[in-house]
């Protein structure tokens, strides 16, 4: 770059920086600020690069010797010998050395325990949710779901009435034609009048299944595209999920609302070690 080009770059930088203060004082605007920052910082940078690359090119390149990395000068051997002599000196008092090792190990063990404070024990939390027999199904805004309120071939997200917004108890309620459901008899009975509910957590990575494909009556995960067949017990038909979605058994309460008939048929979400097969 020529001297003139470098000068232009610096002038642009100065003007942009001054403009920046003016814009800031006037209340600011993200786009103008960004453009001016680009010019102010970029102008400075381009000027400096041009200065070093163009105006100082006559300084040319220099050559200097590299620092050698000799391993043969014996320094290493001397160091090893010194260290080992020290070890031998300390190691002569064998009992003390062992006690020292024991003290360090014991302290290390004691220092591990605070890690336990970081979280609760998993226990059986992962294996069950807050659904119990008789708990009413409510939508995200807390409205109980009446039998028949849901239109055919539509879906909604439901929670236990006392745990709205729950991360593990969330379920999708879908109303389908009862004759089209292909479930074992006991699970068919848990889907009154074609109202079938499954866990909303994908069995792959635990994303909420937000997509209901009405044409094929499939639930699909927006994260990794696992797809579950609603009519056939939500078994996976595509994608990386290995297991069907657990079903939430339903019954109809005396007030005509849908209620849970128990917890999910299986633990919800992705599989883990303690999951019995």
């Amino acid at each position: 770059m020529s001297e003139r080009a470098v000068a232009v770059a610096f002038v642009v930088s100065i003007l942009a920086a001054l403009g920046l203060t003016a814009v800031y004082a006037a209340g600011g605007d993200p786009q103008v600020e960004g453009a001016l920052l680009l010019l102010a910082l970029g102008g400075l940078g381009v000027g400096l690069l041009g200065w070093a690359g163009g105006l100082l090119a006559h300084l040319g390149e220099h050559t200097e010797p590299r620092r050698r990395h000799p391993a043969a000068d014996g320094d290493g051997d001397v160091a090893v010998a010194t260290f080992e002599a020290g070890v031998a000196e300390v190691g002569r008092r064998r009992l003390l050395a062992r006690l020292l090792a024991g003290a360090v190990a014991a302290l290390g063990l004691a220092a591990v325990f605070p890690i336990r404070s970081l979280g609760s024990a998993p226990g059986s939390q992962l294996a069950r949710t807050s659904w119990r027999r008789g708990v009413r199904l409510v939508t995200a805004d807390g409205t109980p779901v009446q039998l028949g309120a849901l239109e055919l071939n539509t879906f909604t997200t439901v929670f236990p009435e006392d745990d709205v917004g729950s991360a593990d108890a969330q379920a999708v309620l879908i109303r389908v034609d009862p004759t089209s459901l292909q479930l074992p008899p006991d699970r068919l009975a848990a889907a009154p009048q074609g109202h079938v509910a499954y866990s909303k957590l994908c069995t792959h990575a635990g994303c909420p299944l937000g997509l209901y494909l009405a044409a094929t009556q499939e639930l699909r995960c927006p994260c990794h595209q696992s797809t579950f067949d609603v009519l056939r017990g939500a078994r996976p038909v595509y994608g990386p999920a290995p297991k069907p979605l657990p079903q939430l058994p339903l019954e109809v309460g005396p007030d005509g609302t849908l209620r849970a008939a128990g917890d999910f048929t299986e633990p919800v979400g992705p599989s883990w070690w303690d999951l019995p097969r």
């Binding site: 309120a149 849901l150 239109e151 071939n153 539509t154 879906f155 909604t156 209901y212 494909l213 009405a214 044409a215 094929t216």
Partner: peptide
């Protein structure tokens, strides 16, 4: 109406 594979959202919901 829920065209294609989109579920229909009726007035009840």
């Amino acid at each position: 109406i829920g065209p294609g594979t989109m579920p229909a959202f009726g007035e009840r919901g």
